[in-house]
Design a protein around this nucleic acid. Structure first.
Lengths: 349, 349
DNA sequence: AAATTTCTTCAAAGCGCTTTGAATGCGTGA
DNA sequence: TCACGCATTCAAAGCGCTTTGAAGAAATTT
């Protein structure tokens, strides 16, 4: 293992100068810098991180914590973010340390990791509204970035899509097609993205002068089973007049809805329109549904590079407010949405 | 942040003694040890890892590298292992650093990580036969453990199931039911588990005096699409007489096969028997198939605690050979397997 | 030519821990 | 009583790096 001292003695320089040369300090002469660079390369020098950490108090590592609820292992969201972040952070010479949260207290694992290691910061995802993890970390001045945001006036760096618009635009597309009874199969209520979409849904319905049907806004984990169950119950008229259109928070929910329509002998989009939000997960393709699915589209992995850079920059002292990204999802109209069925033409009463 | 010095001066002891007390050295008196322990707890002491690393040359961190091929993101295997390992390692006070392999050279990311950080060891999974990563690391004396093994006479710690037996027992179950044309839808050929299962399949077929049909042993990634395609082609008789039974390397393949039988108007298990190997992934339940699926069952996450302990012990100097686990999968007979159809009773020629 | 300002380099301290080698106090046997 | 071994404790060195404060050399000014 080559050390600064090795390079120094090979070149007749002090470790001080070598260190400065490699760290681009201004007070070292250009030729010396070059000599040092060359020697470092020749000797295969790689800085000992532990020593750097000890000296600087910085670790070059950031943390991310997985929840191990069945939910999370099931959905691929986390993996997608995790892998993307890891790659993007590597490009900024930063390591990602993974930990697992097995408890009830959401803050505890962060506390433990902070004590155990010198972590420079954290990446959080799937925030709930007024997320306690975010309060905990920001009170202590620990740098963090969030995929999503826990409130609209967030003061930390984040990357999120406009979830209000995601829901509102979906509703607008359907109302323009003449739909008046539109069900919204949302994600679990505690997540801030779901809360935001619920607001968007309500706002757009109100703007169109439509009531929100009893039981037409539901909250479920992103599974086909949940979608199937909700669609079956709604289409059977168990909660008032059946909807003529469904908006689903995820493709898996939409998959369940599609199955339900098939099982009820209904046709999409003739009898029922279906649309969903598409996170761009590699396994699930909205275009491969039959019929191909109309979606709002925003791939999760788009978040990774911006978030990684934001975190590294934040640690480097950048202004958090300048590191906030609010993207819009893309509306992609395919074959699962169509004009609302004429009154009396629906297969239900 | 509390340091050893803080504890020392609070107690009127030297850092030496405090360090030794906390690390259970014999030369410190029991009462002193207790006093130190109490003070450490009271002051919320947590060892500074960087300093420990610098002093000992050990990092308390191990690495795991993800391949980012679409394959990997798609299948949930890696996530399952990753999360399980992280939790199991945490129990041994070890951190897991994640990196991403985006290139063609399988060894390169390991080389880079070794240079960049002090990692004490690696966890590898999904080995190919004679895996180059394993050679690279073991040549350099880097501790490693493997989920799976790249050859039968492995000299490193591993956790694997007996894949030869997985295949052979499946064949035996089916031959006992009278099946003679048994297709094996295997995983990608390069993986050692797949190679091993192919051997088991061939051996068991030979033992039963049965020929391996042309094209009846196939290699595909674990997707429903691949299972569907293969089953359709085989059942259509495009590669000789159609099989009366399928053994699938994964539940996803089996899902595809089931769909194909439905689409061909065949009944399981009356016309065709189907079985699979079940990795126990949370999302996919063999018992929820219709009909419920006969499987060899061995949950992936069973590997995590043994592997984590093996790695930490190996780093601590344990004998690698003593850290090898070879488990047998459990055979669970459900409703998807039945007697071979009588000759002439099959819906095909 | 002397005094002053740059430019470049260096020695040394310090980060918090482990570990070596020495010192202290104590009871024991001669 | 002295010498010895044993049980505890300590001071100090060192891990490889960054960073402070100072010094030497070269360039500029007076």
């Amino acid at each position: 293992m080559t050390t600064l001292k090795d390079i120094g003695s090979a070149l007749g320089l002090s470790v001080t100068t070598v260190s400065r040369a490699l760290n681009d300090f201004p007070e070292v002469s250009p030729q010396t810098r070059e000599r040092v660079r060359a020697a470092a390369k020749r000797l295969g020098y790689q800085a000992n991180r532990s020593a750097q950490r000890l000296a600087t108090g910085r670790s070059g590592m950031v943390g991310m914590i997985v929840k191990t609820s069945a939910d999370y292992r099931a959905d691929q969201t986390f993996m997608e973010i995790l892998v993307g972040m890891s790659a993007a952070l590597a490009a900024r010479d930063t390591d990602l340390v993974l930990a697992v949260d097995q408890g009830r207290d959401p803050v505890e694992p962060y506390r433990r990791m902070l004590g155990r290691d010198l972590l420079d910061g954290f990446i959080l995802n799937a925030p709930v509204t007024n997320d306690p993890r975010i309060s905990y970390l920001s009170e202590r001045g620990i740098p963090l970035v969030v995929h999503g945001r826990d409130r609209v006036d967030a003061d930390y760096p984040f990357f999120t899509i406009d979830n209000h618009a995601v829901a509102a635009e979906s509703v607008q597309l359907l109302t323009a097609l003449g739909h008046r009874r539109i069900a919204y199969l949302n994600g679990p209520a505690q997540y801030s993205y779901a809360a935001r979409r619920a607001q968007g849904y309500r706002a757009a319905m109100a703007e169109a002068g439509l009531p929100v049907l009893e039981g037409a806004l539901t909250h479920d984990p992103p599974t086909a089973a949940a979608g199937y169950r909700q669609a079956l119950s709604l289409l059977a008229g168990q909660r008032g007049a059946p909807p003529t259109a469904f908006i689903c928070a995820s493709l898996l929910l939409a998959e369940g809805v599609m199955h339900a329509t098939v099982d009820l002998g209904l046709s999409v989009p003739r009898d029922v329109s279906v649309m969903a939000h598409d996170d761009g997960l590699p396994m699930l393709r909205a275009s491969s549904f039959t019929p191909s699915l109309t979606v709002t589209y925003a791939p999760l992995h788009h978040a990774c590079v911006p978030l990684a850079n934001a975190l590294v920059d934040l640690i480097g002292g950048a202004d958090p407010k300048s590191l906030q990204v609010l993207n819009r999802a893309e509306l992609i109209v395919r074959d699962s949405t169509g004009p609302a069925p004429e009154t009396g033409r629906t297969p239900w009463p």
